[in-house]
Design a protein around this nucleic acid. Sequence first.
DNA 1: GTCTATAGCCGGATAGAC
DNA 2: GTCTATCCGGCTATAGAC
Lengths: 200, 200
Amino acid sequence: MTRPVKSKNKEDILDLAIPLFAQSGYTGVSMRDIASAVGIKAASLYHHFPDKQTLYLQAMARAFEDKAQGFATALTVTGTPEKRLAGFVQIFTTLMCKDPEFRALLQRELLDGDEVRLKKIASEVFREPFVAMEALADELAPGCDAHMVAISIASLILYHLETAPIRRYLPGGKARHNKPEVISRHVTGLLLHGLKGCGK
Amino acid sequence: MTRPVKSKNKEDILDLAIPLFAQSGYTGVSMRDIASAVGIKAASLYHHFPDKQTLYLQAMARAFEDKAQGFATALTVTGTPEKRLAGFVQIFTTLMCKDPEFRALLQRELLDGDEVRLKKIASEVFREPFVAMEALADELAPGCDAHMVAISIASLILYHLETAPIRRYLPGGKARHNKPEVISRHVTGLLLHGLKGCGK
DNA sequence: GTCTATAGCCGGATAGAC
DNA sequence: GTCTATCCGGCTATAGAC
């Protein structure tokens, strides 16, 4: 006797849609694609979501939820400001290395996201850890523009990962340049001591 | 007597297609959209290009050509390694600020570009200036990983611009953070002296 | 070189049976 | 909650007139 296949709930559908949107973007994914990944027909999706927009927005909400908490964890390191920076960079880099889907969705939102969506991501995902980063920046470099410093720290980590597909073809590109230990070590040295410190 | 509207050549079409692809990506732009921007019917595009793929690839080739030369110019500054770095950062930042289309296309290629396209962009657009950057990196920070240093420099500049849409909604974000002078000053200080130097 | 017309497919979305 | 069937519009691409 065959057991009936368990019905899918909204969360299951969103979890299957997220990697598709990360891979191909909103316009690159059809309702049929999502249905096919879930193992149902496209029409059945409309029992769970009124339209594609809504499905997408809920998938984004789910993909970004709990990220704020992960980032907050990266800022719980204690000790001197230097130690806390090193700890944050290491944990944040490892987190981002493990989550290429999150990175792709963020990149796509930066390109295509409307005001409402970006505002929501800013306040619900990044605001809290960003404020903590600014506070740390102010300790490490008093008088500097804390906003720019916080962005610079994120830049160094995220752009190394974002450029991975093309760095393969640029001189000196090695596989180890994508490892979180290598990136976080480089970034920490650079932040603390400038170019002179990046071999530390 | 009305003068006949001048027929469009391939280059005119590509120049009109480039901003569309930058704005909405490959799947987000239809042949009708392009035709409409050009002022002709979609069918007429097929007189110039065999298919959409080819049109897109030629538009990319055109959007990226001559960029290598612009980057090379940024590296012609003479003087101490520090002066040359400062000069490069300033010129490169100004160039990138003025060309949001190029930045968007690059971001989209990093997300969606296949191996062949990325390899081509790497060798034809970035290779030469990248090598020069690595040489400069080696002077400024001998013994460091020049590849990582070159990427870090680009990161700092490009990510400040890439994140502009969301930085508006993050604490401390000001309009001046998008100005090339402000960015290049911050980046140069950070590179030369670490966080302590970014207020220089 | 551009047009009209159209083929043929794929997209989002709905109706109604089970 | 999922299905089949279907609508309709948009998509790429082609044929052939001008």
